[in-house]
Write a protein that binds this DNA or RNA. Structure first.
Lengths: 234, 234
DNA sequence: TAATTTTTTAATGTATACGTAATTTCGTGA
DNA sequence: TCACGAAATTACGTATACATTAAAAAATTA
């Protein structure tokens, strides 16, 4: 009990440069993405506050932020509800990502890039190859994610960056379910390599088309997997 | 002084079913869109709190929401900064809207719609015609906005709806500046009519292309206007 | 005077108190 | 037993207090 009291007292000020609100956002987001706060479950502010060892104030602020990001819904007397992700939801999200990432590929191809600008994207592809050879799907997924965010960065539209980052969280959530059900993603690496080459060559329409086709394929596969396996786990 | 005290005390509970936080979001958003909180200006929480006659708590919550919507930036000791909208920002926003609305047109064309589903969109076009004949640009802009949101609704992707609604606010902000500088938008009405017809006919690619071209034109016109006139007013 | 340190100020982040209203529980009557 | 209404509970929205710390101001020194 003693140490608990001390801890609680000590936790008043944030550990290091990070407000309790920010901390709560991170922790709650992780809990949701890890599926440790189940979809559809309701949680009272006071419950979350106690769970994270802080008062309701930063919790409220955090839930507002998470609500704006579409991860939870705040229902006045019913607590914070973690939003479920149906296969329809994922289809919607994939459509948005497909569109905006393809546009990013096009935009990236139209721009002049300083040398070395493509290095992170190349590295991501390399990591994907390595991970695939090693049979490490988690590593592959991380590298894949990295490539997609690089693509968006190269496109240079920061708003697209924000949107894709936001929905990226949700895709990660679904990926937990699908990653080990899907066929080995050998074609992804090729597609990514091709997009990058098209961007380098300044072939805007081509870059867009390649990425778009790749994304459309990925969506079809993912959504059918989710429908097949019910997706009640997410 | 007396009445001030009474007012402050009375404002404790929200006027009508709407929390102070929600109220603050609305009021602040309007102030920003009306350009009565200038871009780049910083405002302390306490200042806004006093301005709206409530305590800092709901103001803080409101600013977090507005921050998530990209209207302001909360900088710890410098207050709430209203984000400026440069012509580059508008270009970014237009690119996103172009892409997502065009996709919506495509999606709408692929779907079966119950009869009467197109009624609101038709009405919006009619209003645009009327407004244009009457020379009422504000009315035209409102009807135009309505059509765009209808288009997105017909597409059926709720996430696109959220994104477009969000950026719609910012477009409205810029429109304040450009509406009376741009040439009369006679072609818009035709384009809208054509999209709607294509959707009706189930011509998905066609619908997408028409709307896309229209949007690209609009973007070029708008961005060049903004560059020309500096846009320092927004 | 300019630079640097100290002091002061004040805005924020957080906890907490409390009134309000929604929900639930309980009790009453049909 | 069920429906309905009253009382009790309690989660939330908001105000407020307060400690922390960044920024500004003042003072000291070179």
């Amino acid at each position: 009990m003693d140490e608990t009291a001390t801890e609680t007292a000590g936790r008043k000020r944030p550990i290091r440069g990070k407000s309790n609100t920010q901390h709560a956002v991170e922790v709650l987001k992780n809990l949701i993405l890890e599926n440790r706060l189940a979809s559809g479950s309701n949680h009272l502010e006071s419950e979350l506050a106690e769970m994270l060892g802080m008062s309701r104030t930063p919790i409220r602020e955090a839930t507002l932020i998470l609500e704006a990001q579409g991860l939870v819904e705040v229902k006045p007397r019913h607590g914070v509800r973690v939003l479920a992700l149906s296969s329809e939801d994922m289809a919607e999200i994939y459509d948005v990502l497909t569109e905006l990432e393809s546009l990013s590929a096009e935009l990236a191809a139209r721009k002049k890039h300083p040398s070395g600008e493509f290095h992170p994207a190349e590295q991501a592809i390399q990591k994907m190859d390595d991970a695939l050879n090693a049979g490490d799907l988690e590593a592959w997924a991380n590298a894949d994610e990295l490539f997609h965010s690089e693509l968006v960065r190269l496109g240079g539209n920061r708003r697209i960056g924000n949107i894709c980052r936001m929905y990226g969280d949700q895709v990660r959530r679904a990926r937990k379910v699908t990653l080990h059900l899907r066929p080995k993603p050998t074609k992804s690496n090729d597609a990514h390599r091709d997009v990058l080459q098209a961007i380098r060559n300044g072939e805007a329409e081509q870059a867009r088309k390649i990425h778009r086709d790749h994304r459309v394929q990925a969506k079809l596969m993912l959504v059918s997997l989710l429908e097949q396996y019910g997706f009640h786990t997410v």
